[in-house]
Computed example of a mutant assay.
Amino acid sequence: MTELELRDLRKTYRSRGRPPVTAVRGLDLTLGSGELLGLLGPSGCGKSTTLRMIAGLETVTDGDILVAGRSVTAIPAQARNIGVAFENYALYPPLTVAENLAFGLRARRGGDRGEVARKVADMAARVDLTPLLDAHPATLSSGQKQRVCLARALIREPDVLLLDEPLSHLDAAQRDTTRRELKRIQRDLGHTTILVTHDQEEALSLADRIAVMRDGVIQQLGTPYEIYDSPANVFVADFVGEPAINLLPGIAEEDAHARLSGSVRVALPVPVPPGREVVVGIRPEDLSLAGAEGLPARVVAHEPLLEAGIATLALPGVEHPLVVLTGPEVRLAHDESVRVTADARLTHVFDAETGDSLR
């Protein structure tokens, strides 16, 4: 069980004739032993660069990386005892699954054959690869290849495990199955783990905590519930959640309301100084079409998805459409008039200029 700490970690790329590009801007993170942290963000936000610096595959411009309290920044990658499962699998085609798993052990230790064979058999059993030990990578499905890649990273008994978009090449059914297996394996073995992903569902379902990144900076660090229920800013609120949160510009008024248009006002969770420009955030599942009260709206579209539905509504005078998650029994027609209500306790309000939460 190993603690991992990043101290003011920075990465700047420099090339002749071009301005420097800073990919990671002063990351401070501490992972407890056995914790799984999700690094979540869009492409280009710096999450994979951070992972590569921890692994020793990228040099560190500034800052420090500590594993079990010891700096590893100046230690070469092969000596760090950090396991990495790559997005592209990186398996050796001529070797069988068993030989792929054994390769790193033999390369590092010279390896007693009996001990290596025991470790391979044990790891294969843990990740359900025993029937495939004699198979070659070309004959495996994407999910099986991903398990081989994960097993190869785990078999070296790493101090820290790094997972780089581990489920990105799998179809929906394989992702669900592999995600559950991955969570079980990580819990059973207790490795301190960083999961790099742009997939919010993956991060929310797997991680103990999530760091949401943008432009090389952590926007918010917290549990999945904290990230979802109390987003720190508009970016986090918009990036996490499916369907995406409704973000509606308005002007704060005296009675803890915001005016979205001449006739549309919504209650806010906290009082905001009157006249302040705000962005009101309401998640689709926190809106209701039940009852005669609420704001008048017109149905633009309704997508019945069997287990739920998604309604797109137009509010009078409001430019942005309003998306509502409906129950499976709801049936709506195009241009139908409805009323929509929101619970102020579940509504979010952000400063329009800075994007920061005002709750």
Rank of each mutant, 00 (worst) to 15 (best):
G143K: 03
R106C: 11
I155K: 02
E99D: 12
S141D: 12
R113A: 15
A124W: 09
D112A: 14
G114P: 07
L101V: 06
Q146F: 01
L101F: 07
K119P: 03
D134K: 15
A138I: 04
A121R: 13
A153M: 09
V116Y: 00
V120C: 01
A125D: 07
D159R: 00
H136L: 09
R108T: 10
L150M: 12
S141V: 14
A151V: 07
A102P: 00
A107F: 13
R109C: 04
V127Y: 02
M123K: 05
L105I: 02
R113Y: 12
D128R: 14
F103H: 11
E99F: 03
L154R: 01
Q144G: 08
G114E: 13
T139V: 14
D122T: 13
E115D: 13
L105E: 00
R113P: 10
H136T: 14
G111W: 00
K119V: 07
R106I: 09
D128L: 13
A138Y: 08
S141H: 10
R109V: 10
L105G: 05
R152T: 06
D134N: 15
R147A: 04
D159M: 02
A151T: 03
M123W: 04
G143L: 09
E115K: 08
P158I: 01
D134A: 15
D112I: 15
E99Y: 04
D122A: 15
A135H: 11
R108D: 01
A124N: 13
A102R: 02
A151I: 02
A117D: 15
R113T: 10
L150R: 09
A117P: 08
Q146H: 04
E99R: 05
Q144M: 13
R156L: 06
G104E: 09
V120A: 01
R109Y: 10
A151Q: 04
A121K: 08
Q146S: 05
L101M: 06
G104Y: 08
D159W: 00
R109H: 11
V120K: 03
H136D: 00
D112E: 14
L154P: 03
A124D: 06
D134P: 11
Q146Y: 01
Q146M: 04
K145P: 03
K145Q: 14
A121I: 09
G111Q: 03
K119F: 05
T139Y: 11
K119E: 15
G111S: 08
P137R: 03
R106N: 12
R156T: 07
Q144D: 08
